[in-house]
Computed example of a mutant assay.
Amino acid sequence: MNNSVGCNSSQGNDPKPVAAVYDLKSKTFALDVDYPKEYYTENSGWPISLCNVSNTPNIKAGTDLYSFAMSPKVIVTDHQGKFEKIDFSSSEIDQSEFQTTDEIPLDPLDQAKQAGRYAQYGAIYYDPLRKYYLRFANGPIPESSMEKRIFKPIQNIIIKDENFNTLGEVKDFEGSHFFFFTKEGLNQISVDEDNEDLMVINVFDYEK
Protein backbone atom coordinates (compact mmCIF):
# COMPACT_ATOMS: atom_id res chain seq x y z
CA MET A 1 0.00 0.00 0.00
CA ASN A 2 1.18 3.51 -0.76
CA ASN A 3 1.42 6.29 1.79
CA SER A 4 0.47 9.29 -0.32
CA VAL A 5 0.35 12.98 0.65
CA GLY A 6 2.82 12.35 3.46
CA CYS A 7 5.83 14.22 2.17
CA ASN A 8 4.72 17.68 3.26
CA SER A 9 4.60 16.56 6.88
CA SER A 10 8.24 15.40 6.73
CA GLN A 11 10.96 17.66 8.08
CA GLY A 12 14.73 17.62 8.10
CA ASN A 13 16.20 14.14 7.84
CA ASP A 14 13.04 12.35 8.94
CA PRO A 15 11.39 11.21 5.70
CA LYS A 16 8.05 9.45 5.78
CA PRO A 17 7.93 5.86 4.46
CA VAL A 18 6.25 5.40 1.10
CA ALA A 19 5.15 1.76 1.20
CA ALA A 20 3.43 -0.44 3.75
CA VAL A 21 4.27 -4.06 2.93
CA TYR A 22 2.45 -7.12 4.28
CA ASP A 23 4.01 -10.54 3.56
CA LEU A 24 1.24 -13.10 3.14
CA LYS A 25 3.59 -16.04 3.73
CA SER A 26 5.36 -14.88 6.88
CA LYS A 27 2.43 -12.69 8.03
CA THR A 28 4.85 -9.87 8.79
CA PHE A 29 4.34 -6.14 8.25
CA ALA A 30 6.98 -3.54 7.42
CA LEU A 31 7.36 0.04 6.23
CA ASP A 32 9.78 0.55 3.36
CA VAL A 33 11.07 3.06 0.78
CA ASP A 34 11.51 6.73 1.70
CA TYR A 35 10.58 9.77 -0.34
CA PRO A 36 13.53 11.20 -2.32
CA LYS A 37 15.43 13.71 -0.22
CA GLU A 38 14.26 16.69 -2.28
CA TYR A 39 10.77 16.02 -0.93
CA TYR A 40 11.59 16.58 2.73
CA THR A 41 14.33 19.20 2.91
CA GLU A 42 13.57 22.35 4.86
CA ASN A 43 12.79 24.13 1.59
CA SER A 44 10.18 21.60 0.47
CA GLY A 45 6.50 22.41 0.14
CA TRP A 46 4.86 20.66 -2.77
CA PRO A 47 1.25 20.88 -3.85
CA ILE A 48 -0.41 17.97 -2.06
CA SER A 49 -1.09 15.78 -5.10
CA LEU A 50 2.60 15.85 -6.04
CA CYS A 51 3.23 13.72 -2.96
CA ASN A 52 1.25 10.90 -4.59
CA VAL A 53 3.28 7.82 -5.46
CA SER A 54 2.64 5.46 -8.38
CA ASN A 55 3.85 1.89 -8.27
CA THR A 56 3.66 -1.28 -10.34
CA PRO A 57 4.82 -4.85 -9.70
CA ASN A 58 6.92 -7.10 -11.88
CA ILE A 59 5.61 -10.40 -10.53
CA LYS A 60 8.16 -12.62 -12.27
CA ALA A 61 11.13 -10.57 -11.06
CA GLY A 62 9.62 -10.16 -7.59
CA THR A 63 10.13 -6.40 -7.65
CA ASP A 64 8.07 -3.24 -7.30
CA LEU A 65 8.73 0.04 -9.13
CA TYR A 66 7.95 3.37 -7.44
CA SER A 67 7.46 6.55 -9.44
CA PHE A 68 7.51 10.00 -7.80
CA ALA A 69 5.89 13.00 -9.44
CA MET A 70 8.91 15.28 -9.00
CA SER A 71 11.74 12.82 -9.66
CA PRO A 72 13.19 11.63 -13.00
CA LYS A 73 14.31 8.39 -11.32
CA VAL A 74 12.21 5.42 -10.25
CA ILE A 75 13.01 3.05 -7.39
CA VAL A 76 13.20 -0.70 -8.04
CA THR A 77 13.04 -2.87 -4.93
CA ASP A 78 12.13 -6.35 -3.75
CA HIS A 79 11.58 -5.03 -0.19
CA GLN A 80 14.23 -7.50 0.96
CA GLY A 81 17.47 -5.64 0.34
CA LYS A 82 17.43 -5.01 -3.41
CA PHE A 83 17.21 -1.25 -4.00
CA GLU A 84 18.10 0.57 -7.21
CA LYS A 85 17.44 4.03 -8.58
CA ILE A 86 16.87 3.90 -12.34
CA ASP A 87 16.80 6.93 -14.62
CA PHE A 88 13.38 7.05 -16.27
CA SER A 89 13.41 10.64 -17.45
CA SER A 90 11.67 12.42 -20.28
CA SER A 91 13.48 15.01 -22.36
CA GLU A 92 10.20 16.93 -22.52
CA ILE A 93 9.57 17.04 -18.79
CA ASP A 94 13.14 17.61 -17.67
CA GLN A 95 13.12 20.97 -19.44
CA SER A 96 10.75 22.26 -16.74
CA GLU A 97 12.15 23.16 -13.33
CA PHE A 98 10.20 22.09 -10.28
CA GLN A 99 9.60 24.72 -7.63
CA THR A 100 8.27 24.55 -4.11
CA THR A 101 5.32 26.54 -2.86
CA ASP A 102 4.99 28.60 0.31
CA GLU A 103 1.31 27.92 0.87
CA ILE A 104 -0.98 24.97 0.16
CA PRO A 105 -4.59 26.11 -0.41
CA LEU A 106 -7.40 24.37 1.45
CA ASP A 107 -9.86 24.32 -1.44
CA PRO A 108 -9.49 21.11 -3.54
CA LEU A 109 -10.04 23.00 -6.81
CA ASP A 110 -7.29 25.48 -5.94
CA GLN A 111 -5.04 22.54 -5.01
CA ALA A 112 -5.66 21.00 -8.44
CA LYS A 113 -4.82 24.29 -10.16
CA GLN A 114 -1.65 24.67 -8.10
CA ALA A 115 -0.43 21.18 -8.97
CA GLY A 116 -1.47 21.55 -12.62
CA ARG A 117 1.10 24.33 -13.12
CA TYR A 118 3.91 21.80 -12.66
CA ALA A 119 5.34 19.35 -15.14
CA GLN A 120 5.28 16.00 -13.39
CA TYR A 121 5.71 12.27 -13.72
CA GLY A 122 2.63 10.09 -13.38
CA ALA A 123 1.48 6.50 -13.46
CA ILE A 124 3.90 3.66 -14.16
CA TYR A 125 3.04 0.27 -15.69
CA TYR A 126 4.65 -3.06 -16.52
CA ASP A 127 3.51 -5.01 -19.56
CA PRO A 128 4.28 -8.66 -18.66
CA LEU A 129 3.58 -9.95 -22.17
CA ARG A 130 6.08 -7.72 -23.96
CA LYS A 131 8.26 -7.07 -20.89
CA TYR A 132 8.01 -3.32 -21.29
CA TYR A 133 7.88 -0.62 -18.62
CA LEU A 134 5.79 2.49 -19.32
CA ARG A 135 5.88 5.76 -17.41
CA PHE A 136 3.71 8.83 -17.92
CA ALA A 137 5.37 12.25 -18.14
CA ASN A 138 2.89 15.12 -18.08
CA GLY A 139 3.43 18.72 -19.09
CA PRO A 140 1.96 21.72 -17.23
CA ILE A 141 -1.73 22.39 -17.84
CA PRO A 142 -2.40 25.75 -19.58
CA GLU A 143 -3.99 28.37 -17.34
CA SER A 144 -6.76 28.86 -19.92
CA SER A 145 -7.73 25.19 -19.56
CA MET A 146 -7.70 25.26 -15.78
CA GLU A 147 -9.98 28.29 -15.72
CA LYS A 148 -12.49 26.13 -17.59
CA ARG A 149 -11.87 23.34 -15.06
CA ILE A 150 -10.17 21.19 -17.68
CA PHE A 151 -7.26 19.46 -15.97
CA LYS A 152 -6.04 17.33 -18.87
CA PRO A 153 -2.26 17.72 -19.32
CA ILE A 154 -0.22 16.95 -22.41
CA GLN A 155 0.78 13.32 -21.77
CA ASN A 156 3.92 11.59 -22.96
CA ILE A 157 4.75 7.93 -22.28
CA ILE A 158 8.35 6.76 -21.86
CA ILE A 159 8.85 3.10 -22.81
CA LYS A 160 11.75 0.92 -21.61
CA ASP A 161 12.52 -2.77 -21.95
CA GLU A 162 12.99 -5.12 -18.99
CA ASN A 163 16.67 -4.06 -18.74
CA PHE A 164 15.59 -0.41 -18.58
CA ASN A 165 16.92 0.47 -22.01
CA THR A 166 14.84 3.29 -23.49
CA LEU A 167 12.87 2.17 -26.54
CA GLY A 168 11.15 5.46 -27.24
CA GLU A 169 8.72 8.07 -26.05
CA VAL A 170 5.12 8.47 -27.21
CA LYS A 171 4.25 12.15 -27.55
CA ASP A 172 0.84 13.74 -26.85
CA PHE A 173 -0.93 10.53 -25.88
CA GLU A 174 -4.69 11.12 -25.78
CA GLY A 175 -7.26 9.85 -23.34
CA SER A 176 -7.08 8.23 -19.93
CA HIS A 177 -4.15 6.55 -18.18
CA PHE A 178 -6.14 3.48 -17.07
CA PHE A 179 -4.50 0.49 -18.76
CA PHE A 180 -4.41 -3.27 -18.86
CA PHE A 181 -2.48 -5.53 -21.24
CA THR A 182 -3.53 -8.41 -23.49
CA LYS A 183 -1.89 -10.22 -26.40
CA GLU A 184 -3.55 -7.65 -28.70
CA GLY A 185 -1.68 -4.81 -27.05
CA LEU A 186 -2.23 -1.97 -24.63
CA ASN A 187 -5.89 -1.61 -23.63
CA GLN A 188 -6.95 1.88 -22.56
CA ILE A 189 -10.16 2.28 -20.56
CA SER A 190 -12.08 5.49 -21.18
CA VAL A 191 -15.61 6.89 -21.23
CA ASP A 192 -17.75 7.31 -24.32
CA GLU A 193 -17.79 11.01 -25.25
CA ASP A 194 -21.51 10.93 -26.05
CA ASN A 195 -22.68 8.72 -23.18
CA GLU A 196 -20.81 8.80 -19.88
CA ASP A 197 -22.57 5.57 -18.81
CA LEU A 198 -20.70 3.64 -21.50
CA MET A 199 -17.13 2.40 -21.21
CA VAL A 200 -14.84 2.36 -24.23
CA ILE A 201 -11.68 0.27 -24.54
CA ASN A 202 -9.12 1.46 -27.09
CA VAL A 203 -6.52 -1.14 -28.12
CA PHE A 204 -3.05 -0.06 -29.24
CA ASP A 205 -0.68 -2.51 -30.92
CA TYR A 206 2.18 -0.39 -29.67
CA GLU A 207 4.83 -3.10 -30.05
CA LYS A 208 4.89 -2.31 -33.79
Results as ranks from 00 to 15, higher is better:
N3L: 10
V5L: 11
G6W: 05
G6L: 07
C7E: 12
C7S: 12
N8M: 05
N13H: 08
V21F: 05
V33H: 01
P36C: 10
P36H: 03
E38V: 07
I48G: 00
V53D: 04
K60S: 11
A61L: 12
F68Q: 06
P72C: 05
P72I: 09
V74A: 01
Q80D: 09
Q80F: 04
Q80W: 01
I86C: 00
D87M: 08
D87N: 15
S90D: 04
S90P: 04
I93G: 02
I93W: 04
S96H: 14
S96N: 14
E97S: 08
Q99V: 11
Q99T: 13
T101K: 12
E103V: 12
I104C: 03
Q111R: 14
A112T: 13
A112G: 02
G116V: 02
Q120F: 08
A123L: 03
A123S: 13
Y125T: 07
Y126D: 02
L129D: 07
K131Y: 02
F136S: 06
N138C: 06
P142R: 12
E143N: 03
S144Q: 13
S144L: 03
S145Y: 14
I158Y: 01
I159H: 08
I159K: 12
N165F: 05
N165M: 04
T166N: 05
E169N: 06
V170L: 14
G175Y: 02
F181T: 03
F181H: 08
N187M: 03
D197S: 12
F204Y: 15
K208Q: 11
